[in-house]
Amino acid sequence: MSQARFLIRRSLQGLLVVWGVITLVFLLRFITPGSPVDFVAPLDASPELRAQIAINLGLHQPIYVQYFDYLFGLVRGDMGFSYIRGRPASGIILSRLPATIELAVAATIVAIIFSIPLGVLSATRRHEPTDYAATTFSLVGISTPNFWLGIMLILIVSVGLGILPTSRRPIGLIPALEMLIFQLQISGIRTWIAHMILPAVTLGTYFTAMIVRLTRSGMLDELGQPYVKAARAKGLPETLVTYKHALRNTMIPIITVLGLQLGSLIGGAVITEFVFNWPGLGTLVIDAIVVRDWPIIQGALIVIGIGFVVINIAVDALYTKLNPRVSYE
């Protein structure tokens, strides 16, 4: 089977999973105690008013009708109206999406830049101080709750040293870039970076630590393989032996593990957003849960689920590209 066909099949499977996600999220409302009306109606609402509200929200319909209405709505990009804000949920969710994506991407970049060289150094200088430092860091890194790390960073960097800001960020990446390009002002992008550093480090630390661990043990395995000895025997520079030969094969299993672990990146993003008051999907969903704003809760969970499925397909594609031995089954 060709790679393209494999990816198409994988996408169809993904679509099936997304459908399952939508169904589960939809059913969530029916296992939750209490009616949405309780949260929407005034406390002193008369039974008639409550019934009217239920009809307005479409809650008087049988479940299957509500389900198909919701499903067909989704296909048209309609997630209903926010109970609290009265605006379309899809618009609210979309407006929050860039902040979350920026945070997740920044954290991933932080993680990759630091972790892979650290893991490689740790393996190539085994039992040297570099190795001990790297392994200690990675142990502490995977054991630290990231919301606490965020608070400690705020305490030390912002409160203690008074350098980076902790207020809600005033500008997103796209407006900042527009400022830079159309008005030739770098202040926007500077503000963006200043607000991004602490959240990105907070979210990225766990991943850095985890990839260091995986890279180190993977590299130790690979460096013991006969092909590494053969590469040295033919006089190849050590740089190529390490990075072109051993690291390449180390990355293949790491990518699979990372694909599975991206869930905790998204989960971590939710809580990091909460700590830094970040205007993303995470704060949106937590706020919505507190007030039972169902269209927002459902929409945001579905978007997160879809994002996760899409990332996993991308990871599969990367995996097949790196590993020539993969069989597309």
């Binding site: 999973v17 399952g20 589960l24 991206l262 905790s264 939710v270 507190v290 809760i297 969970l301 499925v309």
Partner: peptide
């Protein structure tokens, strides 16, 4: 296993927040 796939499509923390937050 299909059901397991769907469960895996939710980041554990997000699912936990939603469930605990909603179930009370």
């Amino acid at each position: 296993m299909r059901f397991a796939d769907i469960m895996l499509a939710f980041p554990a923390l997000v699912l936990a927040i939603a469930l605990v937050g909603l179930l009370g």
